[in-house]
């Protein structure tokens, strides 16, 4: 059964459609929440709260809007409220790098380690750890782009910022990520 059909059935109160949507989105939604709050227990609570919020708000959902964006916006609002309450400092993490400056311009190309080998488990784990070190606003744009494979316009919709801000966060996130990997694992041959 298609997504649109599940959503319209859920709007009519069909609980089978709820199961279908839960099955469809459970991993993606949990991954997104975990990337935002970083703590599995907190992500689990927020995961449950998100579905409760879906039940409360689905009748107000505008079917012309992208359901993914609507669902992730609900989850994001809950996660941001949670972070504001529990760890307000995590929302004020400085966005590194002066305007106009980028890691690409700072890295001497001759000494730059190659990143071609980020395929094995250990390196993947390092990459995930480095991702966790990014400020929350960059982390969420990175996960929405690379893991959720959302379009930039959808990311702007979910995060409620202009497209240009999404691009800036994406670029700075990637640069910071690369810088972190190269600082923490100097001389590491990533191939």
């Amino acid at each position: 059964m298609g997504l649109d059909s599940d959503v319209s059935q859920l709007r009519r109160g069909d609980l089978d459609a709820l199961s279908a949507l839960l099955g469809r989105y459970q991993n993606r939604l949990y991954r997104y929440l975990l990337r935002l709050v970083r703590e599995p227990a907190e992500a689990e609570d927020l995961f449950q709260l998100t579905w409760l919020r879906v039940a409360e708000k689905i009748r107000k959902y505008d079917p012309s809007r992208n359901f993914d964006a609507w669902l992730f916006t609900l989850a994001r609002n809950l996660a941001i409220d949670h972070l504001r309450r529990i760890r307000p400092e995590s929302l004020d993490e400085p966005i590194p790098g002066a305007p106009g400056e980028s890691a690409a311009t700072r890295l001497p190309s001759a000494e730059r380690p190659a990143l071609e080998g980020i395929l094995d488990r250990e390196r993947t784990s390092r990459l995930a750890t480095a991702l966790d070190l990014l400020p929350v606003v960059q982390r969420e744009v990175m996960t929405l782009r690379f893991e959720e494979e959302m379009k930039l316009e959808e990311i702007a919709d979910v995060t409620d910022v202009p497209l240009s801000t999404v691009k800036t966060r994406l670029r700075r996130g990637l640069e910071k990520l690369r810088q972190t990997l190269e600082t923490n694992y100097p001389g590491e041959n990533w191939q």
Binding site: R28, L115, T124, L127, F146, E149, W190
Partner: peptide, 12 residues
């Protein structure tokens, strides 16, 4: 390669 690594991160 970095972008590819991010796309292939395991899904918790």
């Amino acid at each position: 390669l970095l972008a590819g690594g991010l796309r292939r991160l395991p899904t918790p």
